[in-house]
C-alpha cells in the first residue's frame, strides 16, 4: 500500500506578531544556526531577512538557498505545491516555518495549511505568536486587543524583549496573558531566543478544545497590496509612505530605486515610525514596487486611499521612468 511508503509529515510552525516584535530575529536565528538541520522558511518578502552572503548559494525571484541546506521562500500562490513537492524529495526539509503575519487572506492560508495537513504532507506543530513586551505598555486599546486575540488562538506566546521591562512589569504581563490566552504557553524571551525543539518538537500539539469552533476571525485587520512597474526615487517613497501611514499601522515594501536600478530600497513602518533601508546588493524583486499595508481598525477607507494613490501616481508622471530593459537582473 502506498500509505506504508508515505514519509512522516514535515513539522510545521507558524510565527505571527506585530512588525518589530522579533519574528525576523527568530527566522534569522533559525537560518544562521541550523546546526545541520534543513529549515525552510516562508516569508512574505525577503526585505528584512538578514542574509549572510557567505551562506548564500543561489538567489532566485522567490527563493534563496543557503549553503547549510536551508531555504527561504516567498509565501505565494505556489505555496501548497512547493511544500507538497518538497515533502517528496530525497533532501526533504527537517521543518518548515511560516511567517504569516502579512498575508492578505489569513483564511486562505489556514485552508492551505489544513489541506497540507490532511494530505499528510505536514504536521502543524506550533502556532507561535511574538509580543514585544518592551512596548506593550504604549499600545493603544485596539492594538492590545488584537495582540491578545491573536495570542489567545496561538499555542506558544513569546513575551519578547523582556529585558526591556522591569521584573514586576513582566510578572504583570505574564499574569495578564495567562488569563487572556489560557490555552497558550507564555514565555518571556530576549532576542526571540527559543529552542527550535520547542517549535518543532515531536510532542503532540497542545489541545485547545474550542479553538476550532467556527472559522477563525481576523476582524480588525485590513490588508492592502500594491505593485508597480516603475522604479521610484527615495523622495517619492517618502511621500508615498506619508500617505500610507494615514491608512495602515504596518507597511512593508521593496522598491527599486529610480536613481540606480541596481539598488533596492526596503520600507518598514510601524505606526508613526518609518524606516527606509537598502537591500543587499544583488537582490532583485519581481516588480519594481511591491508594498503591503496592514491597517488596524474596523475597516479600510478604500475610496480615500484610492484617491490619494491616484493623486500620488499623477505626481510620478513627469519623472521619466527608465525603460524596462535597463531594469533587468544583473
Amino acid at each position: 500500500m502506498a500509505d506504508n511508503k508515505r514519509p512522516t509529515p514535515i513539522p510545521l510552525a507558524t510565527v505571527g506578531g506585530f512588525l518589530g516584535s522579533g519574528k525576523t530575529t527568530l527566522i534569522n536565528h533559525l537560518l544562521n544556526q541550523a546546526n545541520g538541520r534543513r529549515y525552510v522558511v516562508f516569508v512574505n518578502d525577503f526585505g528584512a531577512i538578514n542574509i549572510d552572503l557567505q551562506l548564500v548559494e543561489t538567489i532566485e525571484d522567490d527563493r534563496i538557498s543557503f549553503s547549510n541546506g536551508c531555504v527561504c521562500c516567498t509565501l505565494n500562490d505556489e505555496f501548497v505545491g512547493s511544500v507538497a513537492e518538497m515533502s517528496k524529495r530525497q533532501d526533504r526539509p527537517d521543518a518548515i516555518l511560516i511567517e504569516a503575519s502579512g498575508v492578505a487572506d489569513p483564511r486562505a492560508l489556514e485552508a492551505s495549511l489544513s489541506a497540507l495537513e490532511a494530505s499528510n504532507h505536514v504536521r502543524l506543530e506550533t502556532a507561535l505568536y511574538i509580543v514585544d513586551a518592551g512596548c506593550f505598555g504604549q499600545r493603544d486599546y485596539a492594538e492590545v486587543e488584537m495582540l491578545i486575540d491573536h495570542a489567545a488562538t496561538s499555542d506558544l506566546v513569546l513575551l519578547n524583549k523582556s529585558d526591556l521591562v522591569s521584573e514586576q512589569a513582566l510578572d504583570g504581563l505574564l499574569q495578564e496573558f495567562s488569563v487572556a490566552a489560557p490555552y497558550a504557553a507564555t514565555l518571556a524571551t530576549v532576542q526571540s531566543c527559543v529552542s527550535p525543539a520547542l517549535l518543532f518538537g515531536n510532542s503532540d500539539r497542545p489541545t485547545r478544545p474550542e479553538a476550532k469552533a467556527g472559522p477563525h476571525r481576523h476582524p480588525d485587520y485590513h490588508h492592502w497590496h500594491y505593485s508597480g512597474r516603475d522604479p521610484m526615487t527615495r523622495d517619492a517613497l517618502v511621500e508615498l509612505t506619508k500617505i500610507l501611514q494615514q491608512h495602515f499601522f504596518r507597511i512593508k515594501g521593496i522598491v527599486q530605486s529610480a536613481a540606480d536600478p541596481t539598488i533596492w530600497l526596503s520600507l518598514q513602518v510601524v505606526g508613526t515610525r518609518a524606516v527606509i533601508g537598502q537591500l543587499p546588493q544583488g537582490f532583485t524583486g519581481k516588480d519594481a514596487v511591491e508594498i503591503v499595508g496592514i491597517g488596524i481598525g474596523p475597516k479600510m477607507r478604500r475610496v480615500e486611499l484610492d484617491r490619494s494613490m491616484a493623486a500620488f501616481e499623477e505626481t510620478l508622471k513627469p519623472t521619466p521612468a527608465l525603460p524596462a530593459m535597463f531594469t533587468g537582473k544583473t
Partner: peptide, 25 residues
C-alpha cells in the same frame, strides 16, 4: 464590528478572559 466587542469562545476562550476584555474596554 466595532464598537461591539466580539467575545465568542473561538476568540476569547474563557469567561475569565472575557471579563478581562470587558475591564480593558
Amino acid at each position: 464590528g466595532a464598537p461591539v466587542v466580539d467575545v465568542r469562545a473561538n476568540i476569547v476562550p474563557t469567561y475569565a478572559a472575557l471579563i478581562g476584555k470587558i475591564k480593558r474596554r
